[in-house]
């Protein structure tokens, strides 16, 4: 089982996301994360899909993706030199005693405090997935009230 990062250039039109997602579900294949946004050409969007699983099935899915008329280009970024980034927004339980330690951690992870309440701190962290994971593990003992991850975006260097 291997993690695959697949970059897909698609026509920027309604329905495309559904078509792409459908291919994964038709093969009973779970998507870890999927991000989509406009590229330098507003007519084209880039999807970054992260999926873990059997290589043969993933190869088949990539071929099927290529068959979609609205898909312009499919590239498996797995194993190549790439930059990947993810954003995290998280609301952490805090009180007077723990606040300083949490803020220090946020500083170390080069995050920003974007909200502060009597009983919580909300922060944003940006970076590769390992960094995000490490931060989450560090703050977990304090108690996570709410959390959202953006999913990965990736590009070849």
């Amino acid at each position: 089982m291997k993690k695959h990062v697949i970059s897909v250039l698609v026509e920027n039109q309604f329905g495309v996301l559904g078509r792409v997602a459908n291919l994964f579900s038709a093969r009973a294949y779970n998507i870890d994360s999927l991000t989509v946004g406009e590229t330098e050409d507003p007519g084209i969007s880039r999807m970054t899909i992260v999926a873990v699983g059997d290589n043969n099935i993933l190869e088949q899915i990539q071929k099927q993706l290529n068959k979609l008329i609205d898909v312009i280009k499919v590239r498996d970024l797995t194993g190549i030199n790439l930059v990947e980034r993810e954003a995290l927004l998280v609301k952490i339980n805090s009180h007077a005693a723990s606040r300083a330690e949490i803020i220090q951690a946020i500083d170390i992870f080069k995050g920003n405090v974007v909200g502060i309440q009597k009983d919580s701190i909300t922060t944003e962290i940006f970076g590769d997935s390992d960094k995000i994971e490490a931060f989450i593990e560090f703050i977990r003992p304090f108690g996570i009230k709410e959390m959202v991850r953006s999913g990965r975006i990736a590009i070849a260097r």
Binding site: N56, Q60, K63, N66
Partner: peptide, 8 residues
């Protein structure tokens, strides 16, 4: 003609 048929 269909690459997806190959090695499926």
């Amino acid at each position: 003609i269909d690459p997806a048929s190959v090695s499926k």
